[in-house]
């Protein structure tokens, strides 16, 4: 189901918590599984439920509560743009307009070639560096402008 590398990472997370509290590692396990698989398919949730000794519905509750988990397939590049107040004041609307025009998709959509998915995000906790775009959940791109966003997207092709 998951590679040994992913399982080893999950085991490292499990070790952080008291032995009878394996469930604490579910968020990390979901993240690690999603990183490997691209998204969280039902089989993946079932596998993790067994791995962590949790009811599957409890795993699903967690996976559906936190924004960064994808319960449906996403493009190879998932771009999440914060549109909250500070970023808005700092000009994110123009950046979003540029990205949308360039990719030809709106928020919540994936390009036909499956390369890009665009999502609207809530505050990343990095407003001072906004506008911001989070690439595949883990890499934060800062201080975007309508001008530099071109190069940013080109770099992902």
């Amino acid at each position: 189901m998951l590679t040994n590398e992913s399982l080893a990472q999950i085991d490292r997370e499990i070790a952080k918590y008291p032995a009878e509290q394996k469930q604490s590692a579910v968020m990390s396990a979901l993240r690690i599984a999603q990183q490997e698989k691209g998204w969280l398919a039902p089989e993946t949730l079932e596998f993790l439920a067994t791995y962590l000794g949790m009811p599957t519905i409890a795993v699903y509750e967690v996976a559906s509560f936190y924004n960064m988990y994808d319960l449906k397939p996403v493009g190879a590049h998932k771009l999440t743009v914060c549109t909250n107040i500070s970023c808005q004041l700092q000009g994110v609307d123009a950046v979003v307009a540029k990205i949308q025009a360039k990719l030809g998709i709106g928020f919540g959509e994936t390009t036909a070639d499956g390369r890009f998915t665009l999502k609207e995000g809530e505050c990343f906790g990095a407003c001072g560096d906004g506008p911001l775009c989070l690439h595949n959940n883990h890499t934060l791109h800062t201080r975007l402008t309508p001008d530099n966003v071109d190069a940013f997207l080109e770099g992902m092709k």
Binding site: P42, P55, E61
Partner: peptide, 16 residues
């Protein structure tokens, strides 16, 4: 067997 997946207004009671 039942949980409440989702968040906020989107929370729904359901089985897996």
């Amino acid at each position: 067997e039942l949980g409440m997946p989702g968040r906020g207004e989107h929370v729904e009671v359901m089985p897996f």
